[in-house]
């Protein structure tokens, strides 16, 4: 209460120069930042209470912090082999996701355009897509290991095959929903195929495409952790598996927090790019 009052008086004190900015920042802090901070603090306290009893199997947050402090403060150490800092582990995973996801974006949009444009292609390919997209990501790993004979391309392939389905399906729906009016405009102007693709089709379908991209990036990140547990090497997924084998539960918990934060950031990044690119696409 007293701190609230103090910040209010501070707002008044500063308001001589840039009052509106300060008020806006304060509003954001109170409305957006405060509620999650309060909830996280409450959950932390609850966790601490539940895991503090002598018989608890999982460590309380204070214990986790103590155990993993070295990892948290030294994210970039490198002792060779798999013994590298958390930042390197996450970057290694992100690199795999970047390759697999980029391939999925290119191939997914291309296939989505094909399926969206051609009724024949849709009739032929849609049943195939509908069946294949239900195959769980990890089920692809053995077959891709057999095919590629190497773990890195296999992991990338698993990411690719996981992320591509929502991209294809959303792109094709977006293409099929392009209003007839826009097509007519293109026909009256006699836009050629390439002009139609870049000036009408992509912008008109962009909101759909980006919702596919957003689902895809989330699925990629889900799949990479599981795939890395099996293929080993540097990467956040194998780090978790390794920690489990060494019974370092605190390390696992720290890794889970990092995985969650990175996944959240990836989702927000794609969402932000999407809203920036499609800022003008709202129906007018």
């Amino acid at each position: 209460m007293s701190s609230m009052q103090r910040s209010n008086t501070m707002a008044k004190a500063v308001s001589f120069r840039w009052a509106p900015d300060f008020a806006a920042i304060q509003q954001v802090l109170v409305q957006r930042v405060l509620p999650p901070v309060v909830i996280i603090a409450l959950l932390g306290i609850l966790w601490e209470l539940l895991c503090s009893s002598p018989g608890a199997v999982l460590p309380p947050p204070s214990q986790v912090l103590r155990d993993t402090w070295e990892l948290i403060v030294n994210p970039f150490y490198n002792h060779g082999g798999n013994d590298v800092g958390m930042a390197w582990q996450i970057l290694a995973s992100l690199e795999r996701v970047a390759y697999g996801y980029s391939l999925a974006v290119v191939a997914g949009i291309a296939l989505g355009v094909l399926v969206g444009q051609s009724t024949w292609a849709m009739r032929g390919l849609d049943p195939v897509f509908q069946v294949l997209r239900t195959v769980p990501p990890l089920a692809w790993l053995p077959i891709s290991l057999a095919g590629f004979q190497d773990s890195t391309p296999s992991a990338i392939f698993v990411i690719f095959i996981t992320a591509i389905w929502p991209i294809i399906i959303n792109t094709s729906v977006g293409i099929r929903n392009i209003p007839e009016d826009y097509r007519n405009v293109a026909r009256v102007l006699r836009l050629n195929g390439m002009e139609y693709f870049t000036r009408i089709m992509l912008p008109a379908a962009a909101p759909y495409i980006f919702s596919g991209l957003r689902i895809g990036v989330g699925l990629s990140w889900l799949a990479i952790v599981a795939a890395e547990m099996l293929i080993g090497g540097v990467g956040i997924g194998f780090f978790i598996w390794d920690a489990w084998n060494a019974s370092m539960i605190s390390d696992i918990i720290l890794a889970l927090v990092y995985v969650g934060i990175v996944g959240f950031v990836l989702d927000r990044m794609v969402a932000f790019i999407g809203s920036w690119v499609t800022r003008g696409t709202a129906q007018g």
């Binding site: 009016d181 007519n184 405009v185 009256v188 006699r190 912008p203 003008g280 709202a282």
Partner: peptide, 30 residues
């Protein structure tokens, strides 16, 4: 269809991702 018979559609059919200038520019540049 062709630009020698330009159409004003009932629901305007402007491309929402282009500005007013760009909408006309698309037609003029083409």
């Amino acid at each position: 269809p062709g630009p020698d018979r330009s159409v004003v559609f009932q629901n305007h059919s402007l491309l929402p991702w282009l500005t007013v200038y760009e909408n006309v520019a698309l037609a003029v540049n083409k």
